[in-house]
Amino acid sequence: MSFNTHKLLESKKKAILEQWMKNQLADDSLREDLISNEELRSQSEELISALVGNLSMADLTDLDSDEWSPVIEILGGISITRARQGFTPRETGNFVFTLKEALLTVLQAEISDNPQLLFEESMKINRLMDSLSVVTFETFIKGREEVILRQTDEIADISTPVIRVWDGILALPIIGTLDSARTQIVMENLLQEIVETGSSIAILDISGVPAVDSLVAQHLIKTVSATRLMGAECIISGIRPEIAQTVVHLGIDLSNIITKASLASALAYAFKSMRLEVRKANSVQKSNTF
């Protein structure tokens, strides 16, 4: 930076911080519920120190250079944390925008006697801060994407519960598309539960699967085979009529697999093969009375 702007700003660090804090605290988008004023102040102080310290030596136009990496790291850290904490993009962006205002306010107060110089130096600060805002948004979005990815994993996990319907019988309702990653989770969960519970029958219910193409079918067949290797029997239930027809047209052979139209009929089958019987209570009474 030409002139002595960097020295000037360096010496005015305190004033910039105060001005910036004032701007931030006055802003509508202040989130006192998410961040305390003390924490906000210490974040702000850290960023100003890194930024102002950098003005003297770094190239202001090339944020990719190594010299800027400490500043970008701090800023990136702040915006990623904010993305995770649930700040909006506007609230996160305002963190940088209000700093720009503070820098310009201090600059104006200090070189008010030279409009030409003030303009030139302001433009530089402007450009720099705009680039930093872009960095902020990029990292913010990255933070959000991480949240989404984590949620996707969580959904994959919670949407494949293994239910112990009866002693020795497990049920696994599958809802949504059964892709390779999901099949892996389903299979692992199922096999682990079979071992833990010593179950002999598993029911895979696909009522909630929108379509069964050849890959989904292959995944189902694989899961059934794996279950058999564990010494348990696997029943596929919830095959809707239109899905049954489609599977036949595709040419998929499910004849080696026990399939049932509904979870109820799969359960009935499971009870039967375990020599269990379900009866109405009064019919038992009747047979006792007579």
Binding site: P210, V212, D213, L215, I243, H249, L250
Partner: peptide, 17 residues
């Protein structure tokens, strides 16, 4: 109809894959 819908979507799924 539902049956044709399912057939079409399954076909699309195969070709997309």
């Amino acid at each position: 109809g539902l049956v044709n819908q399912t057939r079409l979507i399954t076909a699309a799924s195969e070709l997309l894959r």
